[in-house]
Write a protein that binds this DNA or RNA. Structure first.
Lengths: 238, 238
DNA sequence: CGATGCGTTGATAACTTTCAAATTTAGTGG
DNA sequence: CCACTAAATTTGAAAGTTATCAACGCATCG
C-alpha cells in the first residue's frame, strides 16, 4: 500500500542554531490562568528567531530534542516516514503554535517548514530550568503537552471516518484555527492534506469537488476554501 | 458508516469509591531510574483496590478525573463513542498498566473492565500533592504521560495501514506486552479488536484466518493466538 | 435441549486506490 | 510581458480492499 508521498529529496538539513545567551528572566507575563497561551511571553525572552525556507527541515526524527519551537510566521508540518516510504503527517502548526515538545531525549517526528517560516527557537534546558523555579511555567508545559495528547487522540478519531468525514473535519478544524470568518487559507498542499488524513491526493481532490457540488464549500483557488454551509460540514463531522 | 459497535447497554455505572484515608507517605520505593515502572510502588501505599466485573464501567467520558488507576489483575479498555454510535477504542490496559491519567479536569475517554478486574484506585490529588514534594514522582507522572502520547501517535500510524498490517501490528504489540513466548492470550473480543483497529469484526476474523492459512499464526481458540512466523508478521508491520 | 452470544464464512455492494491523462498554476528565461 | 517548462491539481476508468448483509457453526448457560 504505497499510497502516500515518499520523503521529498529536496529537504535539506540545517545545523541547529546557537542560542542567544539566555539572560535569566526575572519575571514573565502570566497569561490569564496560563491556559490561553502557555509560556507565551516567557519564551520570547530567551529564544532566537530563525528563518526557514519552504520545505526546509527544522528538526529530524531521532535527532536529540534540545530545543522547543514556536511559529512566529509561516507554517510547519510534523511527520513520520514509515518503513515502506509512506509519509504520515502528525500535525500542522500555524502562527503562534508551539511544537517540538518531547518527553524523551529524541524527537519522534520530523518537522519541516510548509511555507517560508520564522521560528522562535528556545533551548529546552532553559525552559525546564525555568519550570523548576516557576510553577506557572511548569504548568504551561503540562498544558501544552496535554494539547498534543488531545490532538493525537483527535487524529485517531479522524482516521476511522470516511473520506468525506475526514475532509469535512479537516476543513472545520482549519476554519476554527485560522478563524478568518468562513474563508480558509490553506498553507499546505493537497499531498500534505492527504498525508494528514490518510488518503490519496486524488481522493482529497474528489471529495473537495463533491463538497463543492453539494454547495457546502467553494474552492476559488486550490489554497483557499470558503465554507458556504457549515451545518452540512458539521453533519459530516460525525 | 455505522461499522463499529454501538455502546453496549449492559455496562453500568458505579459510584466512585471512597479513598482509603491516604496516610502521608514518608518514603517510597524508587524504581531504577524511575523509568521501568514509574510511580510503581508509591501508588500501592495510598490507594484502595476495587473489583470490577466484566464490562463494568470504571469511569465515564466527561466525568471529573479525580482518580488514577492501575490494573492489578484483569484488563481494561478505554474508548470513546462517536456521534453516530460508533465506538473507537483508545487502548487496552493489562496487568501493571496505569490508566486514567488526565491533563484536564474531566476524562476524555471512558474506561471499562474487559474481564473481571481488580483495579488500584488512587486519588489524583494525593499523587499530585506528592509530586510537588518529590521530583521522582513528578517525573514518573511525566514519563507515563509521555507513554500515553507515544501510544496515541502509534495508534495514528496503525490506522493508516491496510487491514493485514493493522492486525499484524496488533498481534505483535500484544505479544510484546504479554511476552509469554509466542503465545498470545487475548482478553478482548473480536469486536474490541475491530474497534481498536478501525475495522469490522468480519475483516478482523478474515484477516486472522488468512494469516493462519499463510502459516504466520495459529488460532487454536478464538482468544489464543500462537505466532508461528514472526518475521512474516514483522514484514507486514510496515 | 433450546436460547443466546460470539466468531466464522460467503456473496455482494460501496468506497478508496491505482493508473493514466487532461488541465491549471507557478516559475523561469528571454 | 510572453512563451515555455515543470509542478500541482483535477478528472476519468478500472481494480482492489473493506464493509455490509446474511447465514451458519460452536460454545455456554439456564
Amino acid at each position: 500500500m504505497l499510497t502516500q508521498t515518499s520523503v521529498s529529496a529536496d529537504t535539506f538539513r540545517r545545523s541547529i542554531p546557537p542560542t542567544r545567551n539566555a539572560a535569566p528572566v526575572a519575571r514573565h507575563d502570566l497569561d490569564d490562568a496560563g491556559e490561553r497561551e502557555p509560556l507565551g511571553h516567557s519564551m520570547h525572552l530567551m529564544g532566537a528567531t530563525m528563518s526557514f525556507p519552504r520545505n526546509a527541515e527544522i528538526f529530524g526524527e531521532d535527532e536529540p530534542a534540545e530545543y522547543i519551537y514556536k511559529v512566529i510566521s509561516g507554517s510547519v508540518r510534523t511527520y513520520k516516514v514509515l518503513n515502506d516510504g509512506r509519509r504520515q503527517i502528525g500535525g500542522f502548526y500555524l502562527s503562534g503554535d508551539i511544537f517540538g515538545l518531547e518527553f524523551a531525549d529524541e524527537h519522534t517526528l520530523s518537522a519541516e517548514a510548509i511555507t517560508d517560516a520564522k521560528i522562535l527557537v528556545i533551548k529546552r534546558s532553559a525552559i525546564t530550568a525555568l519550570a523548576q523555579r516557576d510553577a506557572a511555567i511548569a504548568r504551561g508545559l503540562f498544558v501544552l503537552t496535554g494539547r498534543e495528547l488531545r490532538q493525537a487522540q483527535q487524529h485517531v478519531l479522524l482516521l476511522v471516518k470516511s473520506a468525506q468525514e475526514r475532509v469535512a473535519s479537516f476543513l472545520l478544524e482549519m476554519a476554527a484555527r485560522g478563524s478568518a470568518g468562513n474563508s480558509i487559507e490553506l498553507p499546505m498542499s493537497r499531498q500534505d492534506i492527504a498525508d494528514y488524513l490518510g488518503l490519496t491526493i486524488e481522493t482529497v481532490s474528489r471529495t473537495l469537488t463533491s463538497l463543492e457540488s453539494a454547495a457546502a464549500i467553494e474552492v476559488p483557488t486550490s489554497r483557499r476554501i470558503v465554507v458556504r454551509n457549515r451545518s452540512a460540514l458539521n453533519r459530516l463531522n460525525a
